[in-house]
Simulated scan of single mutants.
Amino acid sequence: MATILMADDDEDDRLLACEAMGEAGLSHDLRFVADGQELVDYLTRGGAYAPPAAAPRPAIVLLDVNMPRMNGWEALVSIRRHPELKGLPVVMMTTAWTDRDVRRCYELGANSFIQKPGSFGELVRILENVDRYWFGTVSLPGA
């Protein structure tokens, strides 16, 4: 069972992600942080995440673009600056986006860009596709 870390400030989106994982029949360890700073703390074992048991290494990060304190763009830049995190797959997600946002995502080192779905059924489908691709198609370090 892989750990998926989702950074999203919207509590409803986090709840829907849990429900969609269940609906899709996925048994990954889905963990959440509420903003980019908390994400960086989790990944670098800062603050409350210092004990390894508090922050198992994720196989993939789902990163919302629009968050308080440190947005997704800033968090992605911070992640890519850490040598031990450079290879960590990061999938950027947002509701509203432009072609410029998509380009920026890849220029900053994201592995994928996904538009947040408008319905629960679409979310289930996206999570199934994320699972199929990241855990069934590609090879991840440590797998």
Rank of each mutant, 00 (worst) to 15 (best):
residue 2 A to H: 09
residue 2 A to D: 10
residue 3 T to Y: 11
residue 4 I to F: 11
residue 4 I to D: 04
residue 5 L to Y: 03
residue 6 M to H: 09
residue 8 D to C: 13
residue 9 D to N: 03
residue 9 D to W: 00
residue 10 D to M: 08
residue 11 E to I: 11
residue 11 E to Q: 09
residue 13 D to T: 08
residue 13 D to P: 05
residue 14 R to E: 06
residue 14 R to S: 10
residue 15 L to Y: 10
residue 15 L to C: 08
residue 17 A to S: 13
residue 19 E to N: 08
residue 19 E to Y: 06
residue 19 E to R: 13
residue 20 A to D: 01
residue 20 A to K: 00
residue 22 G to R: 08
residue 22 G to I: 07
residue 23 E to S: 00
residue 23 E to A: 02
residue 24 A to N: 07
residue 24 A to H: 02
residue 26 L to Y: 04
residue 29 D to S: 12
residue 30 L to A: 12
residue 30 L to Q: 14
residue 30 L to F: 11
residue 31 R to P: 12
residue 32 F to L: 08
residue 34 A to C: 14
residue 34 A to V: 14
residue 37 Q to A: 07
residue 37 Q to L: 08
residue 38 E to G: 00
residue 38 E to P: 00
residue 39 L to C: 05
residue 40 V to E: 03
residue 40 V to G: 00
residue 43 L to T: 04
residue 45 R to C: 04
residue 45 R to H: 14
residue 46 G to H: 12
residue 46 G to P: 06
residue 48 A to Q: 14
residue 51 P to F: 05
residue 54 A to K: 13
residue 54 A to F: 11
residue 54 A to W: 10
residue 56 P to G: 12
residue 56 P to D: 10
residue 56 P to M: 06
residue 59 A to W: 11
residue 60 I to R: 00
residue 62 L to V: 05
residue 62 L to F: 06
residue 63 L to M: 13
residue 65 V to G: 05
residue 67 M to N: 03
residue 67 M to T: 05
residue 69 R to T: 11
residue 71 N to M: 03
residue 72 G to T: 03
residue 74 E to A: 12
residue 75 A to L: 09
residue 75 A to H: 07
residue 78 S to F: 01
residue 79 I to D: 01
residue 80 R to Y: 12
residue 82 H to C: 10
residue 83 P to K: 09
residue 83 P to Q: 09
residue 84 E to I: 06
residue 86 K to G: 05
residue 88 L to Q: 04
residue 91 V to W: 01
residue 92 M to S: 00
residue 92 M to D: 06
residue 92 M to G: 01
residue 93 M to T: 05
residue 93 M to C: 15
residue 94 T to D: 12
residue 94 T to F: 11
residue 96 A to R: 14
residue 98 T to E: 08
residue 98 T to K: 11
residue 99 D to S: 15
residue 99 D to T: 14
residue 101 D to N: 12
residue 102 V to E: 07
residue 103 R to E: 12
residue 104 R to L: 14
residue 107 E to F: 04
residue 107 E to M: 12
residue 110 A to E: 01
residue 112 S to M: 11
residue 113 F to S: 09
residue 115 Q to W: 05
residue 115 Q to E: 15
residue 116 K to L: 12
residue 117 P to F: 02
residue 118 G to R: 13
residue 118 G to S: 13
residue 118 G to C: 12
residue 119 S to M: 13
residue 121 G to P: 01
residue 122 E to Y: 15
residue 123 L to I: 03
residue 127 L to T: 01
residue 127 L to H: 01
residue 128 E to I: 02
residue 128 E to Q: 15
residue 130 V to W: 01
residue 131 D to R: 03
residue 132 R to M: 15
residue 136 G to T: 09
residue 138 V to D: 06
residue 142 G to P: 11
residue 143 A to E: 15
